[in-house]
Design a binder for these strands. Structure first.
Lengths: 209, 209
DNA sequence: ATATAAAACGGAATGTCGTTCCGCTTTACC
DNA sequence: GGTAAAGCGGAACGACATTCCGTTTTATAT
């Protein structure tokens, strides 16, 4: 169940008869908007004015609302984009590191994502219908990524494999949302503890039980 | 321009009542505002316009801001008021029911409070300094109420007494904030389960296990 | 290459909101 | 009753999200 990238780098392939779909300038605007919004949200929070994002992206206000009918649509799009990046990171880490290390690094990557998005929890509980589909999207995108990493690590005996990916994802999310006010690295250590737990239960042999 | 006249000089009133403190019309305005805000927040959410509250209370906008310098001060005041009511309910329930029943009913009362205040979690995580003191106030007000109920129930063998009140309060809060979208009575049943757990561990006699 | 219609653009205009300001009214105390 | 402080109401202000529409750009047909 994969889905082609909706807004990736513009590839000038002339294939297809009716290319009436996406105009080049529109694609440029959307990309610039997403980049600008990500940067502005990171510095000024998700409550930053739309005008500030439009200015940083070098487009007019009207252009923002052409592509994102509501403010919340932009916010949701950025969240989705970051989740995509997080999911993609799984493949990259799996290619660059041995399975156990890849799993550990990805868990921290995911934890960082949750911890830095302070406005995420508020958005999900805001009642805005725009965000209703986000939880399902997150799980749909993150579950396979983590599942693959766990299986990979379990195959070489670097971690136990009998763990539900969703359980892990929600557990980490809860850990990172709780005590972020007191100690900045509290979440990091708790996640590391979780990963160590995965390693502890590893089975060296093929036979799981 | 800061508040300086809150506290008068050192004890200028020996026995007589100094009426220079609160003017009658001001008290009326504050009461009407609090009532109106509670009603409006319940129906339209905590993001309801200040003007709507002012109109419902029958006062002008200026009057709102005289007593609540910021919107968030009004929100916090309503939260505090509801927590007070919840804490007071403990004494009422203790007087009207036997200890075990009082404890059980109060837990549901508290659960209802948390579950219906959808904007509470968002407010606490909003970063607005106005809400910084709320968690401490909640605990300070609720802890003694629950502690008394637990002790009362434990004294007649209706519940175990070796439970930390804060643990219970935070556990119930978490339960009521999680799965409120799926099933409306999920929280209620989970809280009932918790209460049953308290009853299960009750000691009818003095034997310490 | 030029024409053309659709798509996209920019930004002024609109409406809502929080908050401030200030002249007028009420209250409490003498 | 006199008076001064406290309280009141609401117009005014600035920030924001969102809409509207005349102008410009793009993709395709000619």
């Amino acid at each position: 169940m994969n889905e082609e990238s909706k807004h990736q780098e513009s590839s000038p392939e002339p294939a297809g008869r009716t290319d009436r779909r996406v105009r080049a300038d529109a694609q440029r605007s959307v990309d610039a908007l997403l980049d600008a919004a990500k940067a502005v949200f990171a510095t000024s929070g998700v409550d930053a004015p739309v005008r500030e994002i439009a200015e940083k992206a070098g487009v007019g206000i009207g252009t923002v609302y052409r592509h994102f009918p509501q403010r919340s649509d932009l916010v949701a799009a950025v969240f989705r984009q970051e989740v995509d990046a997080c999911a993609q990171a799984a493949a990259v880490l799996a290619a660059e590191h041995e399975p156990g290390e890849a799993l550990a690094r990805w868990m921290q990557r995911y934890a960082d994502f949750i911890a830095t998005k302070r406005g995420l929890a508020s958005a999900l509980h805001s009642g805005d219908p725009t965000f209703d589909s986000l939880p399902a999207y997150f799980q749909q995108r993150l579950h396979p990524a983590l599942r693959t990493l766990i299986d990979g690590a379990a195959a070489v005996g670097a971690a136990r494999g009998d763990i539900d990916a969703d359980d892990l994802l929600s557990a980490v999310a809860r850990l990172c949302m709780s005590a972020n006010d007191d100690k900045p690295d509290h979440a990091r250590r708790m996640v590391a503890l979780l990963v160590d737990g995965l390693r502890y239960g590893a089975t060296s042999s093929k036979d799981g039980k």
